[in-house]
């Protein structure tokens, strides 16, 4: 049974580039054993609003999305940021043949967020003590990071300062 031949393979790639001094283009491409799809968004900065969108979707058994271009335009004006996922899903719909496209719009948006995150992370010092101080300061500045993943979990070194200043004070 185990002939080492793959039954299914998937490649998804998301790229973000500047299209002028400020604005961004984010492209998500999917190629897997059943699907060939692509979504491109343009994001106006600094508002981070989706200003243009296009895409295509071919699938082995799912029907093409009728009026795809028109459907995608519904997300124009949506801001990339907190709360965007429920807005994008709500605007584009939940039909089965739209599921991947909705996911890919989200992936494009995540690409933009990660690009901006990368700029912040580049400021982290190289030495261990400096990095601990950098990320401790980050969680103090953005409380939403607290207890949101293993690195910033309750009781761990990077949140020790925050907990000492706040939770300890409340006890």
């Amino acid at each position: 049974m185990s002939n080492n031949i793959l039954n299914f393979s998937m490649n998804r790639s998301t790229n973000v580039e500047k299209i002028n001094a400020a604005d961004l283009r984010s492209v998500c491409r999917l190629r897997d054993s059943l699907t060939d799809a692509e979504v491109t968004i343009e994001v106006k900065m600094p508002d981070m609003e989706i200003s243009a969108i296009s895409g295509h979707f071919r699938h082995a058994y799912l029907e093409e999305v009728k009026d795809l271009d028109e459907r995608l335009q519904k997300v124009i004006g949506v801001r990339v940021g907190s709360g965007m996922l429920k807005i994008i899903r709500g605007l584009l719909g939940e039909e089965e043949n739209l599921e991947q496209l909705v996911y890919m719009v989200e992936e494009c948006c995540h690409g933009v967020i990660l690009m901006l995150t990368k700029k912040v992370l580049l400021k982290a010092p190289d030495d261990e003590a400096g990095r601990v101080a950098f990320y401790s300061k980050m969680v103090k500045k953005s409380i939403r990071l607290y207890d949101r993943c293993a690195a910033f979990a309750k009781g761990t070194p990077l949140v020790a300062e925050l907990e000492a200043e706040n939770v300890g004070g409340e006890a």
Binding site: L6, N7, F8, N11, S13, T14, N15, K118
Partner: peptide, 28 residues
């Protein structure tokens, strides 16, 4: 400015089981 690549491969390990291997490789 940023690139994220994800690759997922699925193979049949035996009659009842799949083996899944995923890779995420991006700028960060």
């Amino acid at each position: 400015e940023f690139m994220r690549n994800k690759v997922v491969n699925v193979a049949r390990l035996d009659e009842k089981t799949l083996s899944v291997h995923g890779i995420l490789d991006d700028s960060i």
